[in-house]
């Protein structure tokens, strides 16, 4: 009996939700409201919020729909991390609180705030439109509905995971580059773009790709992996971003960008010396004028500290470079063969 009673006690406790509040029509600045409520083990953050709204304060605002991790409406920051309130257990959050027993609830970042925990999704939707995040069918209109459009399993596996995205915008909220520039394409839109570009039914691959390699596009991702790490559906978003880059490098006419040149410099340097030639990397990425304008003041400081990378002739090749070059070249032959087979 005692054991059962203890378990019961362990399964219920008072928890405080510290909720971000801001009604821009009334408040001059945001504040936090604390709501302390009895919570049983097994209750989600969303249900706790529902309890507060129904029993304590009807004025708190948040989005909610399916309550089952499907619709992506209830994305918010819980103890600092963007996730879905409906799939997050209050109990699991207790060990992550900065202040004992207080769970902090805040709106997603990198999107304009409407009220309390509700953010404006319109800018994200506008980006999805800008990058044509839909399949633009190659099937003539007259045939639609009359003919099947078959997708092979092999093809589907390439974007199966990407189709799991529910547009909860957690990745948008966590993105390092969006924090710095709201015009950046954003991880969710890159993921969708990759998925559409890999679809054989789509007819605007080249147009979409041409837009993706422009400023604020795919090359501005800084590889921090925050999007992937917080994705509520565990989608490997970086694979999609790298997939677009790989595509851009292979496609003719898409290579004339700083990002592409920078990436290809690695390939070129490794093939020659096995080492990166850092001294000329800025020139090869952005040209002489940019480099002189942007890096000269720093170069002077670096020279004074003897920190400048060595000029190309002084970059020592890796030991056994001759053999390495032969191996690298042999792999290039494999890649050529792969392309031939792929194109057949």
């Amino acid at each position: 009996m005692t054991v059962a009673a203890d378990q019961h006690n362990e399964g219920k406790r008072d928890v405080t939700l510290r909720v971000f509040r801001l009604n821009p029509q009334v408040d001059s600045k945001p504040y936090y409201d604390d709501y302390t409520i009895p919570v049983e083990r097994g209750i989600t953050v969303l249900r706790a919020l529902n309890y507060i709204k129904e029993n304590i304060d009807a004025s708190i605002s948040y989005r909610v729909f399916c309550q089952a991790g499907i619709c992506g409406s209830c994305g918010m920051r819980i103890n600092g991390i963007s996730k879905l309130a409906c799939t997050t257990q209050v109990w699991d959050e207790l060990s992550k609180c900065r202040e004992e027993g207080i769970i902090k609830i805040e709106p997603l970042r990198n999107m304009p705030l409407i009220k309390d925990l509700i953010v404006d999704m319109d800018p994200l939707v506008a980006k999805m439109k800008h990058y044509s995040n839909w399949v633009d069918s190659t099937m003539p209109e007259a045939e639609m509905g009359k003919k099947e459009f078959l997708v092979s399993e092999e093809e589907f596996l390439r974007y199966d995971k990407a189709t799991d995205c529910i547009l909860c915008a957690s990745c948008v909220s966590e993105c390092s580059i969006l924090r710095a520039n709201k015009d950046y394409v954003s991880p969710a839109v890159l993921l969708k773009s990759y998925r559409m570009n890999a679809d054989s039914r789509d007819g605007i691959h080249d147009i979409r790709l041409a837009e993706l390699v422009q400023d604020h596009g795919v090359w501005d991702c800084t590889h921090c992996y925050r999007c992937q790490e917080t994705c509520v559906k565990s989608i490997p978003i970086m694979d999609a971003i790298h997939g677009i880059r790989e595509d851009a490098i292979e496609s003719r006419g898409m290579k004339d960008t700083a990002g592409s040149k920078h990436a290809e410099a690695f390939m070129s340097d490794i093939s020659k010396k096995g080492k990166l030639v850092e001294a000329t990397l800025p020139f090869r990425t952005n040209g002489v004028a940019w480099t002189v304008k942007n890096l000269l003041p720093m170069a002077v400081k670096m020279i004074l500290k003897r920190r400048t990378p060595p000029p190309p002739p002084l970059v020592k090749s890796s030991k056994g470079i001759k053999q390495f070059r032969a191996e690298f070249k042999e792999m290039s032959e494999h890649v050529k063969q792969d392309h031939k087979t792929h194109n057949k």
Partner: peptide, 19 residues
């Protein structure tokens, strides 16, 4: 390991996955 070469710096993986 003097034989080691540049890892690709988080770039080679998409420029050429096989290399």
């Amino acid at each position: 390991l003097h034989e080691s070469t540049c890892c690709g710096g988080s770039n080679l993986d998409y420029v050429s996955p096989k290399h």
